[in-house]
Computed example of a mutant assay.
Amino acid sequence: MATLNFIADNIPSEQGKTILITGASSGIGKETARLFQSKGWNVIATMRDPENETELKQLKNVLVAKLDVLDVDSIQNAFADGVKKFGSIDLLLNNAGYGAYGPLEAFSRDQVLRQFNTNVIGLLDVTRTVLPHFRENKKGMIINVSSVGGKMTFPMGSLYHGTKFAVEGISESLGFEVAQFGGQVKIVEPGMIATDFSGRSLVFNNDENMAEYQNLVGSLMAAMPTMAENSSPASVVAEVIFKAATDGTDQLRYTAGEDAKMLMANRHQYDDATFIGGIKSQFGLK
């Protein structure tokens, strides 16, 4: 029995570790906060409007903090509040973001900047805030929520896919850097998720005066319900995030959702012309 107790005492425990999550007010972020809290983690659940959050505030060892990735002061304040409450941070989950879809010509420059500032520059600002802490502690993991849309594209998504392709490159390269002090970077690539992505997390722009694009716009709108039928609940992504955080491997990319697995398998199997031809066929395009 003493031997069994010795073994149990020396099994690495995830309990008592701390995760900081951006975009935790709903969807993937909120489900991840719930899951990690249920597994014994401390959770810093950050969002733009924490005054509207009620459920997470009721959970033990959860700090709900204000963080807007477009506001550097709010990033630094949320980080400082989290360290003050829990002592240190072990894992950063960069989850905050949204999707801008529509013809590129239909977006103003300000809208283009907002998409990249939110999904890319904001992610970098949060990461740069946490990195010195990880470096000082000689450990720490960053998990970036990308998308299958960071490895392949759908029509009308040049802005969104551009940001997710950027997240992929940032993550892969940053992994070399943080490894120098014992850190790690991982990427989670969900497919279509049954959250509010089609609501407040999606911005769609169109100008009907641009007649050349309207067939493509119509095809995208017609395909959306079918794509949504194959979506996964946000809890599926949360489970993949937890696996990435705790599996003890050096695996870089994790696909989340059955539709994502199928799309990625096809992307790896076929050449560009064949794969893009399949996407065109799916959307009824020539």
Rank of each mutant, 00 (worst) to 15 (best):
Leu131Met: 08
Ile21Phe: 00
Asp71Cys: 05
Leu123Phe: 09
Gly277Met: 07
Val72Ile: 15
Leu263Met: 14
Val148Asp: 09
Gly29Ser: 00
Phe107Leu: 13
Ile241Asp: 05
Leu93Trp: 08
Ser235Asn: 09
Ser281Leu: 14
Phe134Ile: 05
Glu168Ile: 14
Asp73Arg: 15
Ala238Pro: 10
Asn144Leu: 06
Thr118Ile: 00
Glu229His: 08
Val185Asp: 02
Pro225Tyr: 03
Met192Asp: 13
Leu131Val: 10
Pro12Ser: 08
Gly82Cys: 01
Asp90Cys: 08
Met227Ala: 11
Ala234Lys: 07
Ser201Ala: 14
Ala2Cys: 06
Met192Leu: 04
Lys261Arg: 12
Tyr213Pro: 10
Phe275Arg: 00
Ala45Asn: 10
Ala223Asn: 08
Leu93Thr: 02
Glu14Arg: 05
Met1Val: 14
Pro233Ala: 11
Gln214Ile: 02
Ile187Lys: 05
Asn144Gly: 06
Ser231Gly: 13
Ile276Gly: 01
Val148Asn: 02
Ala222Leu: 09
Asn10Ser: 07
Asn144Ala: 04
Asp110Arg: 13
Thr32Ile: 07
Met264Trp: 00
Pro155Asp: 10
Val217Ala: 07
Lys66Ile: 09
Val120Lys: 04
Met192Cys: 02
Leu216Lys: 03
Asp271Val: 06
Thr118Met: 05
Arg135Ala: 08
Gly182Cys: 06
Ser219Cys: 14
Gln58Ile: 04
Leu131Arg: 06
Gly257Arg: 12
Val203Tyr: 02
Arg267Trp: 10
Ala166Tyr: 04
Leu174Gln: 02
Ala33Arg: 03
Phe154Glu: 14
Ala244Leu: 10
Ser13Thr: 15
Asp110Trp: 07
Ile187Val: 15
Thr32Phe: 07
Asp71Ile: 02
Met262Glu: 12
Phe197Asp: 02
Leu113Trp: 08
Asn10Gln: 13
Met210Ile: 14
Tyr160Trp: 12
Asp250Ala: 11
Gly23Trp: 08
Ile121Gln: 11
Asp71Trp: 03
Val62Gly: 05
Gln58Pro: 12
Ala179Pro: 00
Ile170His: 12
Asp90Val: 04
Asn42Lys: 03
Ala194Tyr: 06
Gly175Ile: 02
Thr255Lys: 07
Leu63Ser: 02
Ala106Ile: 11
Val188Asn: 00
Lys164Ser: 09
Met227Gln: 08
Pro132Leu: 00
Gln115Lys: 01
Asn61Met: 04
Ser25Trp: 02
Ala2Val: 14
Gln184Tyr: 07
Arg267Gly: 07
Glu258Gly: 07
Gly99Cys: 08
Asn215Gly: 13
Ser13Phe: 00
Asn215Cys: 00
Ser146Trp: 05
Asp272Trp: 04
Gly182Asp: 15
Arg200Gln: 10
Gly182Lys: 01
Asn61Thr: 03
Asp247Pro: 04
Ala106Trp: 07
Pro190Gln: 10
Thr22Met: 01
Phe181Ser: 01
Ala100Asp: 15
Thr226Trp: 05
Ile121Thr: 15
Glu136Phe: 11
Thr118Gln: 03
Met156Ile: 03
Thr246Cys: 07
Thr32Val: 11
Leu124Tyr: 13
Lys30Trp: 05
Val236Lys: 10
Phe176Met: 12
Ser74Lys: 11
Phe79Tyr: 12
Glu229Asn: 14
Asn215Met: 04
Asp71Pro: 04
Ser235Glu: 15
Ala273Arg: 01
Leu123Cys: 10
Arg109Asp: 12
Gly102Cys: 09
Leu104Phe: 15
